[in-house]
Design a protein around this nucleic acid. Structure first.
Lengths: 229, 229
DNA sequence: TCAAAAGTGTTCTTGATACACCCATGC
DNA sequence: GCATGGGTGTATCAAGAACACTTTTGA
């Protein structure tokens, strides 16, 4: 059932850079390709956009199909249009980045995709197409955005300790931060709600758990508040 | 000469939000449509992406064809994909925003487009398609970006006074700024080169002209400097 | 000489930085 | 009782905010 047009058209795809944090390293989710081209290579989850869906719809559908991920933070990143980025034909890809609570999706053994795995950013394998470039842009975006919007919480479990939060920021921004100043600043915003539960983990003093107060943030933002860390 | 594909494909367009500054108001460039749909309505300059060109190429080509603009600051903004955003068929549009030195392109009587005109942002006519939404997103981007990247200079002539620069920031950010503090801060960055010429304008004290030192900025940026105003 | 925009310093307040020790727990 | 990470306060320094008058020119 062919579809014909008066002028040639590029194919349209979405690709998703999915970030996760395991408490130590920032990681991204890759899928091993089961079809040519780049058969057997690692690639970003993604695929063709259907003519009946928006780009956001397509990105969410691909995340669900290829990685079993739903309900994740997802934001459009950039559109990539190099004329030869796909060896088969002209393909324009709209890239997204997603943030997932790795601890909540335990071990995350992927969906129906042939093969999916988390890679630390420092140990990425060679990637198909121009996906290395897309990852680079996504990382830049994450680094700048995490500083002035409270999106870091999307990478942590709903309940987290201040040390976990600081570890996350240090991993994303690749900088060491002073513990007292970090706690002072983040608590001064009044966006973290202390919970009565506690965490024990290993053999140490239990830490206070917090959750991010999204409603309060939304209200403050309307009144001109700017998150910044 | 039809082109056929196994699956239906969306058409792909680019649309450009072109900002200009006349010394008092921030303006955008609109084109009056000469074809259906929205015949006679005002719309953003833009058009279909050819299968042989990148998105950036397409945006620059459309700016040249429809508005006679070349050599302008141009940056990809966001991709819009509402299923019904074009009444004819499925069209995905990649939006760009451009900054032009309005004073250098004098009166800017447009290119070969049937009709082009500059509108102050406060007095925009109804726009075709979802272009009002695109303008809104572009304006948000401009407002956030102008504060931490030196792109404001793209809207001023190469030589400008500090008052012109401050007027620009006040127009874009819609805030009043203190003259002494503004000058102190911007000069402290060391990115403005004072010129020996002077401007006279009306019947007042001449003002020192400056130009932006793009080379110095590039060098500083590499060493971790962050522009911020 | 007047109107209009250019230009210039200091004080105060606020937020950022630097820094070291005790606490609670499991082993 | 010891190893491990959790938790806390102050003093200093830098940057941002507030603020009013003199200068230069053309008309």
């Amino acid at each position: 059932m062919p579809f014909t047009y008066a002028y040639p058209r590029a194919a349209l795809t979405v690709d998703c850079v999915v970030f996760g944090f395991d408490g130590a390293d920032l990681k991204i989710l890759l899928i091993r390709r089961g079809v040519a081209p780049f058969l057997g290579s690692w690639a970003l989850p993604g695929g063709f956009v259907r003519v009946t869906e928006t780009l956001d719809d397509a990105a969410r559908r691909e995340l669900a199909e290829e990685a079993g991920l739903t309900q994740v933070f997802l934001e459009q990143l950039y559109s990539f249009s190099g004329v030869d980025r796909d060896p088969r034909e002209r393909v324009v890809s709209v890239a997204y980045y997603a943030l997932v609570k790795l601890a909540d999706h335990p071990t995350m053994s992927a969906g129906d995709a042939s093969d999916a795995a988390w890679f630390p950013l420092t140990q990425l394998p060679p990637l198909a197409f121009d996906h290395a470039e897309i990852v680079k842009i996504a990382l830049e975006r994450l680094r700048t955005k995490v500083r002035y919007q409270p999106i870091g919480f999307e990478l942590l479990p709903k309940q987290f300790t201040l040390s976990q939060l600081q570890d996350l920021y240090e991993a994303v921004l690749r900088t060491a931060m002073d513990k007292r100043n970090f706690r002072k600043k983040i608590l001064a915003m009044g966006l973290l709600i202390p919970l009565n539960g506690r965490t024990q983990l290993g053999a140490h003093r239990p830490a206070q758990l917090f959750r991010f107060d999204a409603k309060k943030y939304a209200a403050l933002k309307k009144r001109g508040f700017h998150f910044e860390l």
